[in-house]
């Protein structure tokens, strides 16, 4: 028996919005410690990994490990039927070929139930080694989204260059070129606007903007995004999954990490 309840169903909607264009089908691995998902896009250039901690749920029970393979586009459709303030419960019985989704409205007299068929998916699970990254840039998620969108007007790829003075995002295309430079800054009043750069050695790598623009669909989850880079390994774009409660308290309940293989010179 698996049962997981989130008090703010909108968090699940945001997670699905962040991944369902990159991957259409994926398996959730459910264990006593939480739910996780790992999947590559069809061209195997990028990989998304979602992790939700069991203790981030208001109720979490997983008697035995389960793999819930499903069509994420369909899951997204059903989650659209939940109100943003609804409590959302996911239930799966051992050996069943479907999961149940229960939406409880805040008024406490309206309950909706939906079922989705599960799928047997051939999971290609990749081992992601622990890496210590040369460069880590923490910046406003909305700023990163804006930069990726703007530079995609110029070209298909962005070159991210880090030096002592800051981080440069640049693109070149038929019409010309463009770049956005950010230097480290911190604001006591607005920590969500901070840019934090930690760097061991200068580095420059090029990535396809098509994928980065898909990753920025996770922007509503968290005010800051972390980019981690090292030579010859995929870029990691990480968003914390933050649940905002009625009292305006913020609770980190997991993360989404996107990995993107770099473009390299022929």
């Amino acid at each position: 028996m698996f049962e997981a309840k989130l008090d703010r169903g909108i968090v699940l909607k945001k997670i699905l919005d962040a991944i369902n264009q990159l991957v259409n089908e994926a398996s959730w691995e459910c264990t006593s410690s939480g739910m996780s998902l790992q999947a590559m896009d069809t061209s195997h250039v990028s990989l998304v990994a979602v992790n939700l901690n069991g203790d981030g749920f208001s109720k979490f029970r997983c008697d035995r490990n389960m793999v819930l393979g499903m069509n994420l586009v369909n899951l997204s459709k059903i989650l659209k039927c939940a109100g943003n303030d609804d409590k959302v419960t996911i239930k799966a019985a051992d050996g069943d070929d479907k999961i149940k989704l229960i939406f409880e409205a805040p008024n406490e007299y309206e309950v909706s139930q939906y079922e989705i068929k599960l799928m047997n998916l051939d999971a290609e699970y990749l081992g992601i080694p622990e890496t210590s990254y040369n460069v880590t840039v923490k910046m406003p998620a909305a700023k990163f989204q804006r930069i990726c969108r703007d530079l995609n007007q110029i070209g298909d790829a962005v070159t991210i260059s880090c030096t002592k003075s800051g981080v440069d995002f640049s693109a070149t295309g038929d019409l010309g070129n463009g770049s956005v430079s950010l230097s480290q800054n911190s604001s006591f009043d607005k920590p969500e606007d901070n840019v934090t750069i930690s760097m061991q050695e200068p580095l420059s790598q090029t990535f396809a903007l098509k994928y980065l623009n898909q990753f920025t669909k996770a922007t509503p989850l968290c005010s800051q995004v972390t980019l981690s880079l090292s030579p010859d390994v995929p870029l990691v774009v990480e968003y914390k999954i933050i649940e905002e409660n009625e009292e305006d308290s913020k609770n980190e309940i997991g993360h989404i990490r996107y990995y993107l293989a770099p473009k390299i010179d022929d």
Binding site: M40, S43, H44, V45, S46, L47, E124, Y125, L126, G127, I128, P129, A157, T206, A208, D232, V233, P234, Y259, A261, P262, K263, I264, D265, D266
Partner: peptide, 14 residues
């Protein structure tokens, strides 16, 4: 010209 690499170049099957 830059070539796009894929995940399998970096991450192995676990």
């Amino acid at each position: 010209k830059n070539q796009q690499t894929t995940m399998s170049k970096y991450f192995g099957n676990s």
